[in-house]
């Protein structure tokens, strides 16, 4: 059979799935389980591609170097026309999450105005929860982060924001509420040194997206099926357990409308 039908070029290419450490805690156990599950569920070899920033992942996704990627709501909204939604994770029964402003444990602070003059840690300039939410909050007051804070820096990882605030390198940080909550279970010693001072409203959970022209391919259909069927599989449940997620839903682009309005706000007010 193999000799009768030589493999096509397309079939020889593995399915490339992009992830960033912004979101994931580079957990090798998780990566191994996810790769194993997707390969088996999709019936094709899946290659996990790790990049440091959302920007790298987004540009590779747009240029077709990646077949699909787990990105953030902010780049999804920003490149709404070029991207297509594949699936949205379900966390605690919902497809939404919050952004937290965290400060060190014991510090009195409940609004962003309490954080004026801080050294502030963001996670990624293309992250919704780790940058855009705080940026929009300041824009509402007509200020920019570099004017409001004494100094800001990017850690390119939500976990790193928690580390920076816990160690005292930053006095406050913008972090993904889901990541912070998961860390209270997995790294309680670290999160115990911090506390959320402010929580945003609920926004669409960072989705899995693909390039629009690729959206109708078989591989994407198989990826959708694999993600939706995750809770029914033993390895899939292992992956979900490591991620503390319930499963994946088809999702609706309107989930990200609140993020889109923040993008607009920031563009308007600078």
């Amino acid at each position: 059979m193999v000799t009768a039908h030589p493999p096509t070029v397309r079939a020889a290419q593995p399915f490339r799935f992009g992830l960033t450490p912004v979101f994931l805690n580079s957990d090798l156990d998780l990566l191994e389980a996810l790769q194993k599950y997707l390969s088996a569920a999709m019936g094709t070899e899946v290659q996990l591609v790790l990049k440091r920033t959302y920007q790298e992942i987004t540009s590779q996704l747009l240029s077709g170097l990646l077949d699909a990627a787990w990105i953030c709501g902010f780049p999804f909204v920003a490149y709404r026309r070029e991207l297509e939604l594949v699936a949205v994770p379900i966390w605690r029964g919902k497809t939404t999450y919050q952004s937290y402003l965290i400060v060190s444990e014991g510090r009195e602070a409940s609004t962003i105005s309490d954080l004026r003059g801080d050294i502030h840690a963001f996670s990624d300039p293309d992250s919704n929860s780790g940058y855009l939410v705080t940026r929009a909050l300041l824009a509402e007051n007509g200020v920019k982060p570099q004017d409001f804070f004494q100094r800001t820096f990017f850690t390119y990882g939500h976990r790193n924001v928690v580390r920076a605030v816990a160690a005292g390198l930053a006095q406050s940080g913008s972090v993904d509420g889901y990541v912070w909550e998961v860390m209270t279970e997995t790294e309680a010693a670290l999160t115990r040194q911090t506390r959320p001072a402010w929580r945003s409203d609920w926004m669409g959970f960072p989705p899995i997206a693909t390039a629009r022209e690729n959206a109708s391919s078989n591989n994407i259909a198989r990826l959708r099926q694999a993600l939706w069927g995750m809770p029914q599989d033993r390895v899939g449940r292992e992956v979900l357990n490591l991620l503390r997620l319930d499963g994946f839903a088809p999702g609706d682009p309107s989930l990200f409308d609140s993020i889109a309005s923040r993008v607009d706000l920031v563009r308007t007010l600078g």
């Binding site: 050294i119 004494q150 100094r151 160690a167 005292g168 390198l169 930053a170």
Partner: peptide, 12 residues
Amino acid sequence: LAASVPKLAPVL
């Protein structure tokens, strides 16, 4: 710029 124990030597 940074210290291994930032509380002893804060940024800036």
